[in-house]
Design a protein around this nucleic acid. Structure first.
Lengths: 153, 153
DNA sequence: TTGATTATAGTCAGGAATGGTCAAATTTGC
DNA sequence: GCAAATTTGACCATTCCTGACTATAATCAA
């Protein structure tokens, strides 16, 4: 069993025993598993990413931490499904379709939908080279979607 | 929990229990938390800045004090003011401060705030060259803010 | 009145304590 | 053997905290 799996299992246990929220000290955890601190980042990015249904927040400096939250709920599935449906790129038309569907299904409020549409508009992204816009659009959209799931953190 | 967080929490309580105005003695407070007096300035400048929605006044010398007041405005004013405060570029930290203030003041819903924070995160903008991120961030933020204004007409 | 003393607060540079990123090296699983 | 996953280390970024030095206000003594 690779160290990364052990670390992931440890974090899973933390999540299970704390109703879905785990708070870590990167250095401490690295020492516990005798690995490089950066391996903690590796484990988090490969196993606790937004696509896996987790929110990760952190803070540097004295008293710093890494907090991992598991998102639950029911509009969740709709949103998670959307996150997983968005590939590397996202066109304006497809984005609009996703958003209006989520709004229709009640997974997003009117305000939320309007904000998302604004953030993804070509107008907001006008200073990005057109051939890169769909890439950025996809990244921003996923990030926004997952944030909705964690809104009660 | 870092001392700075404790101090910030203490000031928050003061504000809450005094309808938005807290008056401190820097030296006394520093002694209460066993820290350097200048740390009080640090806490104030990082957590009670104008961008966070506070006004700070002070006076030196005998009987000196630091007064922190929370400012209140209508949601529409707050949003328009924010739009006007954002220049060509916007750092992640400043963006976060703006958003948390708008949330606190009730100009944004929790969902809206979460979505905006996600859209503006370095994580979402990862594929943009770092030196261009603040530019894009400003554009997206303004676009989103304006969408909120027109959404609840 | 005015100069000295005392009592506050402000600024800034820097050290310490975190976490983040990336690419190269290594190991693992077909 | 090869591709993917893991692991590490070098370097970067952020946040916290302090202390030396500075600035300002009130008070008191002459």
């Amino acid at each position: 069993m690779a160290t990364s799996d052990l670390i992931a299992g440890f974090i899973q246990e933390l999540l299970d025993s704390s109703s879905g929220i785990a708070e870590l000290r990167r250095g401490i955890l690295a020492e516990k598993f005798s690995c490089a601190p950066s391996q903690i980042n590796y484990v988090i990015s490969t196993r606790f990413s937004p696509e896996h249904g987790y929110i990760v927040e952190s803070r540097r400096g004295g008293g710093g931490y890494i907090r991992i939250s598991r998102v639950r709920n029911t509009p969740r599935q709709l949103i998670m499904h959307t996150v997983n449906s968005v590939g590397e790129r996202l066109s304006p038309r497809t984005a609009a379709a996703f958003i209006s569907n989520l709004l229709y299904e009640g997974a997003l409020s009117g305000e939320g939908a309007a904000i998302m549409a604004a953030a993804l508009s070509d107008n907001a992204l006008r200073s990005i080279a057109p051939e890169h816009r769909d890439l950025i659009r996809a990244a921003i959209f996923k990030q926004m979607l997952v944030s909705v799931l964690s809104e009660n953190n």
